[in-house]
Design a protein around this nucleic acid. Structure first.
Length: 478
RNA sequence: CGGGAUGUGGCUCAGUUUGGUAGAGCGCUUGGUUUGGGACCAAGAUGCCGCAGGUUCGAAUCCUGUCAUCCCGACCA
């Protein structure tokens, strides 16, 4: 948008962090509470999450998954069973030590993730290959005692879904892991209009206890990367640790192979930082709680309110529509709904009624057009699709413009210091080298992209100069 | 967890240096006039100055602690 029309939000070029905070508060997505890192997700913010949930849940069901509900607490002994897992999570779990006035025999951890609970349950219900696969998912909140917190991006309690599946064979489990990553990528690109890089995490960045971690990485407005969803392949390590066994077709006892995958309310943070502008939030139509808002102009004049309601009613049949009959001036309402990222605004006043038309404005680029009332539904529906496409294309173009290739250490350092964004570079595959890059260059590895073989900017590691194994994306991450 | 900043009506902030009756603008309520990009007039209501201790005749103001928020770093599914 050319002109800044909402004055209450700090420009992102001036202070991106402040801009983000202004947007989450002014758009009424969250409220702070008296507990650090625990936020109230307000109705407008929660409605976005509900829309994300609805879409994803449908995709999960379509691929054969079932929803369950696991307990909030994990006994310490259960959490201890898989060594890498507990080591990874120990620094950030919250513990319950008292029940009423009495000290508990064994302290209980508030789940930071539920692998252990699912395993403990699967042990009881899986006995035969006929019981497999198990394709469970749950929508819940988890707690991780983060030191630095930010709304949606890193909170101590957050809403998410976690899928946990068990399979008879390794191939099937790996396929599941990849399938779910594809579902996440599809969700981000088609529905959230946010392009993502699909790839695999390096060993260093892998989930605690996983054999492979796959990720989707998105680039935000300020050039920082945001890990937006992950899918893990566990092999049968957890199954062994938790003693999950089944009898296969040949009457042999086997450990099943396992996956887990999750996305969280962090996706809302991603939407804000991917599409937002200096007037506030810009919502992708698919998850916008209000897709079209009808604003009467000179509402006190004969027949205006009625006409506005009529338009809203017509629109409600093709999208999520709202009419705002409040006493505020039209200009105030324009600013308000822009701040809240509503994709399409319809203005209807005496002048329009006389000409049997209305004015339609789009949030993504500010364009206004006058439309005959008979074309209303069709125009709005088309606009919602156009807006999604435009948001996606803009974000993709920006990502391409902010993706660089480093061929040697000097180049690498120069880009990392001066050009925010993704950096593609060849890497030797050594974790120690990766650690040095983090310390010296100041960027972390994001992922080894799936399409890596198509690109080959060199034969040697960008840092140590040894023979290169992979193309790796680097960046500064949230 | 380290460094820095900030907490005063719903919001943005002044007042703190130098202790002495709690302020402004916006918002809110009521009535009226308005309405095509954050309208105007009039009359009102709203505060244990984040919380807990201490110093003092007297604390928003000084001291100690604590909690939350923001920023930078460390850490981080």
């Amino acid at each position: 948008m050319d002109d800044k029309k909402v004055k209450e939000i700090t420009d992102m070029e001036v202070d991106f962090a402040k801009w983000y905070t202004d947007v989450v508060l002014k758009a009424e997505l969250i409220g702070y509470t008296s507990v650090k890192g625990c936020m109230v997700i307000r109705p407008y913010g929660y409605a976005i999450w509900e829309n994300i949930q609805k879409i994803l849940d449908g995709m999960f069901k379509q691929t054969g998954h079932e929803n369950v509900c696991m307990p909030l607490f994990i006994p310490e002994s259960l959490l201890q069973k898989e060594k890498d897992h507990i080591q990874g999570f120990a620094p950030e779990v919250a513990w319950v030590t008292m029940g009423g006035e009495e000290k508990l025999e064994e302290r209980l951890c508030v789940r930071p993730t539920s692998e252990t609970l699912f395993c403990d349950h699967y042990k009881n219900i899986v006995h035969s290959y006929r019981d497999l696969p198990k394709l469970y998912n749950q929508w819940c909140s988890v707690v991780r005692w983060e030191k630095t917190t930010r709304p949606f991006l890193r909170s101590r309690e957050f809403l998410w879904q976690e899928g946990h599946t068990l399979h008879a064979t390794e191939e099937e489990a790996v396929k599941e892991t990849r399938q779910m990553l594809d579902i996440y990528a599809n969700m981000c690109e088609e529905y959230l209009a946010m392009p993502v890089i699909k790839g695999e995490k390096t060993e260093k960045e892998r989930f605690a206890g996983a054999k492979q971690t796959f990720t989707i990485e998105a680039l935000m407005h300020d050039g920082k990367a945001l890990q937006s969803g992950t899918s893990h392949y566990f092999g049968n390590g957890f199954a062994k640790a938790f003693d999950i066994q089944f009898t296969d077709k040949d009457n042999k006892l086997q450990n099943p192979f396992q996956t887990s995958w999750g996305v969280s309310t962090r996706l809302i943070g991603a939407i804000i930082m991917c599409h937002g502008d200096n007037s506030g939030l810009v919502l992708p139509p698919a998850v916008a709680p209000i897709q079209a808002v009808v604003i009467p102009v000179a509402a006190h004049k004969e027949g205006v309110k009625e006409k506005a309601c009529e338009l809203c009613e017509r629109l409600s049949k093709v999208c999520r529509a709202k009419v705002d009959l409040s006493e505020q001036s039209p200009g105030w309402k324009y600013a308000e709904y822009e701040m809240k990222g509503v994709p399409v605004r319809i203005e209807i006043g005496p002048r329009d009624i006389e000409n049997n038309c209305c004015v339609i404005a789009r949030r993504d680029n500010g364009e206004k057009q006058t439309v005959q009332l008979c074309d209303l539904e069709q125009t709005v529906q088309k606009l919602l699709q156009d807006i999604r496409d435009n948001l996606y294309n803009k974000a993709l173009l920006r990502r391409e413009q902010m993706t660089y290739t480093a061929r040697n250490k000097e180049e690498f350092k120069d880009i990392a210091d001066n050009k925010p964004g993704f950096i593609k570079a060849m890497w030797c595959g050594d974790s120690e080298c990766e650690e040095h890059i983090k310390e010296e260059i100041g960027v972390t590895s994001r992922c080894i992209p799936f399409n890596a073989d198509k690109e080959h900017p060199g034969d040697t590691c960008v840092y140590c100069g040894k023979k290169a194994k992979h193309l790796l994306y680097f960046g500064k991450a949230y």
